[in-house]
């Protein structure tokens, strides 16, 4: 293994584990009925939503080459499939991959 890559992996896993471990330790004194728990619950959902929006609107990796319009079209169409399929998670997910692959081929 290349030393640089191994160090990068170790540093990445340490940075990731830190947030998880601190979260586990600091939740010891928090009751699930407390206001603090409710607040953290809101923070978690809002942070995840912000992450999803950023991934779609300002992506990193291969998605950066797909146009805004095609990404927006995939999101809207997938949500329509989600509601039509009575909130099934698998159909819109598979649909999004197929739709993105087709759109990126033409736009």
């Amino acid at each position: 293994m290349s030393a640089n890559i191994v160090y990068a992996i170790l540093v990445t896993s340490l940075a990731t584990f830190l947030s998880r471990f601190l979260g586990a330790v600091s939740s010891e004194g928090i009751k699930e009925t407390s206001k603090l728990f409710k607040w953290f619950n809101c923070l978690a959902y809002a942070t995840l939503a912000a992450l999803i929006a950023r991934t779609i609107i300002f992506p990193v990796g291969v998605l950066i080459d797909a146009s805004y319009l095609s990404r927006l079209a995939v999101v809207i169409l997938s949500l329509i499939v989600f509601f039509i399929s009575k909130k099934n998670y698998v159909y819109p997910t598979i649909f999004s991959a197929v739709c993105m692959a087709i759109l990126s081929n033409y736009f």
């Binding site: 959902y45 999803i52 989600f82 598979i94 993105m100």
Partner: peptide
């Protein structure tokens, strides 16, 4: 590209599906 969009779409659907209270729905929207 198809594989890359799949994850945010799946999470988005799960978040919309989990939005059953005012607090969670607003958290997701905001």
């Amino acid at each position: 590209m198809g594989l890359a969009i799949l994850n945010p779409i799946y999470f988005l659907c799960m978040m919309v599906g989990a939005s059953k209270t005012i607090q969670i729905s607003l958290s997701v929207l905001l």
